[in-house]
């Protein structure tokens, strides 16, 4: 491993930019995401910075069970995120559709049909601590030695 790569690894593990997108959730997971920002959980001490801009993001957090309006919008949004990137599904909805995946429904889960999902956090909704620990354990794994393995 080159010196440059090890420098990149150590910096990337302390600087994770996050964007979140709601593709048809009930808001429960979104407010648990917002709760992560509060000084009690304080995600910025781990170097996670939430600003909802896909062009600057490393991690895309997805909540919701994929409603029809997103069909032509989620893929372009995913393409806008620069490499290396990773998508995390939060809550039961993007994994299975949860209570909304019934006859007569309008949603089209799972989200992994549309974009690649690297990790899933089940729960309805998951706790803020679970969300933070997933991002923290996942991001270094994905971003480690990115340039050397993808040359």
């Amino acid at each position: 491993m080159s010196l440059l790569q090890s420098l990149k690894n150590s910096i990337r593990s302390r600087s994770i930019h996050v964007a979140y997108v709601n593709v048809g959730s009930c808001n429960g997971c979104d407010i648990e995401l917002l709760a992560c920002l509060s000084p009690r959980y304080d995600i910025e001490q781990y170097g996670i910075y939430v600003h909802n801009n896909p062009r600057e993001a490393d991690v895309l957090l997805i909540t919701g069970a994929f409603s029809p309006q997103w069909e032509d919008k989620l893929k372009p949004l995913w393409d806008k995120i620069p490499n290396p990137k990773v998508a995390v599904a939060i809550g039961n909805c993007p994994i299975s559709g949860c209570v909304f995946n019934r006859p007569e429904t309008l949603v089209d889960p799972p989200v992994s049909k549309h974009i690649p999902i690297a990790a899933e956090i089940p729960g309805c909704p998951p706790r803020p601590t679970e969300i933070i620990s997933t991002i923290l354990s996942l991001a270094p794994l994905i971003f480690k030695d990115y340039e050397e393995t993808n040359r």
Partner: peptide, 13 residues
């Protein structure tokens, strides 16, 4: 709107 339409009333019926 239409970005989070899930059709809950339709499922409930």
């Amino acid at each position: 709107l239409g970005y989070v339409k899930k059709g809950i009333e339709r499922i409930m019926r």
